[in-house]
Design a protein around this nucleic acid. Structure first.
Lengths: 339, 339
DNA sequence: TACTGTTTTACAAGCGTTTGCAAAGAGGCA
DNA sequence: TGCCTCTTTGCAAACGCTTGTAAAACAGTA
């Protein structure tokens, strides 16, 4: 493996001169720089980032922790973050904490040991699990940005979306179409006061006669299917369904079509997230668009600022983003309803 | 940041002793080892992998290059590879080469500079683009495994799937249902002799009276939509459609339903890949299951063997896997066809 | 020519580990 | 007690780079 020294010998200069030439330092003659660069290219020299990191104590690597990849939200997020990191000259170490986030602590520790310059931690259904490890990182002043609202958010730099506002807006849309019995199916309340379920409940509470049904604990297509059938079998079966996210909505639409119920003619359906699948589904899904591009960009920007500026660590930064409703074809007025 | 030295001072031994204690060397007294480990834990010492990598010339990091993440095949692959790598004690540097793979060379170079122990390169629609950079890596004897069949495959270690066999099996299934006019829509032939389109054409050629239509250059939902409408408008409009992958199949099913054509009643549809979406789609999609779990595991295993064993680099290893047909609900017999 | 000031280059220390080798201790035996 | 072995520990070099500082080279000026 060619090193700085090899290049130096070949160019007849010392290795520090080569280092400066390659780093574009001003303390060097333009002509020698050119010559050295040409020699370096000739030998196929590739800078050793490991050695550089050790010397500079900067790895130009970011760590990303994500719970899973089956929910298409996460791949998209990964893609965007890789992209923004790369623009800024950073590589990305990817860790997967598991749907139950049980590996979260270990992931953080692994990233710490690899001396990443900063970490983006995507919180999941369980919020943050590796609090201890985070404390250690914060003692070491290693920049870390949490994605998604979590309890005790004031302890972290954080980028999140006001899902409650999204749930509120979506629910009001359904209410305005005339729906009163609306069921929301999903795993669990996980964003505290900013949870979409909270927004749903608030909108329903504000509407006289509205009958909210919230069915949590739904993690699989099977569970969604069972829940849909139970709800449809009840006396006051809902005229509209909301999936906790677009994936749950696809499960619901399948359950409905299996039961011979057409959507949106007989029952309205909405999702959350505005993933690609929302546009592929038939009927195309009315959903709440999550500002994922902005989330990714804000997170990277915030992290890079922390890394370079090291500004006042005692004040944590928060960015709260707003989602917005995307109306497509999956929600009509309830059958028995006439304006 | 606590170092070996800090721990050593606190424990009253030299840093090399600490190093040995933490590495579990036998050249050390069990009692002192215990004591040192306890001291290390007390100080929150985290080994510096950068320094370790420099000293050992092993980073315990793998590089993964993937073209994009919108096709759900890639996220799933990433997830599996991260998982297998982690089991073996490796971290994962993720690089995205772009749908056009224009960044592939740069990705490989970046991984090289970061001194990963090995690279998994996922080839895309364009096969391999960074041949030059690969040559350089191979000169340096950096282990690299290519995913997906590419021209001049004999030059690389490679794990691939015989898509042609999958296309052949799927097409024969449609033929056996009575379809003769079958259209395949997709981007382009990209797997050489192992391409699914080749398998399709072979099966069609073997069936008297079969009329294959292959429409390439279809990269977006819009393009798929146009193609479907053109095909449906022709005299001998196809009775069955095959999507190059499950994503293209979802585009087709939407075009069909927009055109008021029911699937599978009026037209059959099949996909390729058996991604999650194939099970969510209505109708649930008949498709060719790609052995993605085996691909991921084989690739990591092959790479790790190369890294540790360094066996006979002159002989490249190939693993060819077989896909298999998954019959669901999207393919019936053609309308005018009676057995 | 000698001196000063300004590039330009070389030297050397340091980043935090690992690891071969030497040294120190401990214990056994004559 | 002295010698030898074996175990345990410490020393120092190395990994490949960055960077502060000293030295050299080169002009320009008096």
């Amino acid at each position: 493996m060619t090193t700085l020294n090899d290049v130096a010998k070949k160019a007849g200069v010392s290795y520090s001169t080569v280092s400066r030439a390659l780093a574009g330092s001003t303390l060097i003659n333009a002509a020698t720089r050119e010559r050295i660069i040409r020699v370096a290219e000739g030998t196929g020299y590739q800078v050793n980032h490991v050695a550089r990191s050790l010397a500079t104590r900067r790895s130009f690597t970011l760590g990303l922790v994500v719970p899973e990849t089956t929910n298409p939200y996460f791949p998209k997020l990964i893609d965007l973050i890789v992209h923004h990191a790369r623009i800024a000259g950073y590589s990305l170490l990817l860790n997967i904490s598991g749907t139950d986030q049980s590996e979260e602590g270990r992931c953080l520790q692994a990233l710490h040991q690899r001396r990443v310059d900063g970490i983006i931690l995507t919180s999941g259904l369980h919020g943050i699990v590796g609090r201890e490890e985070i404390d250690l990182l914060q003692d070491r002043e290693l920049p870390l940005v949490v994605l998604g609202w979590v309890p005790e958010a004031e302890k972290y730099d954080l980028v999140a979306c006001d899902d409650a506002a999204g749930g509120y807006e979506l629910t009001n849309h359904l209410l305005s179409l005339g729906h009163r019995r609306i069921a929301l199916l999903g795993p669990k309340v996980c964003r505290d006061k900013y949870d979409r379920i909270q927004g749903f409940l608030r909108a329903m509470a504000e509407c006289p006669g509205a009958q909210p049904r919230v069915q949590t604990g739904i993690y699989t297509e099977q569970e969604a299917n069972t829940a849909v059938h139970e709800l449809l079998g009840s006396d006051d079966s809902p005229t509209a369904f909301i999936g906790f996210n677009d994936m749950e909505a696809t499960w619901i639409v399948n359950s409905l079509s299996d039961a011979g119920i057409s959507c949106p003619q007989e029952v309205a359906l909405a999702g959350f997230g505005d993933m690609d699948v929302a546009r592929y589904l038939s009927p195309r899904l009315t959903t709440v668009a999550y500002p994922i591009e902005t989330v990714a960009e804000s997170a990277v920007t915030m992290l890079l600022n922390r890394i370079s500026a090291k500004v006042d660590l005692s004040v944590r930064q928060h960015v709260m983003l707003q989602p917005h409703l995307v109306i497509r074809q999956s929600c009509g007025a309830p059958k028995q309803f006439k304006f």
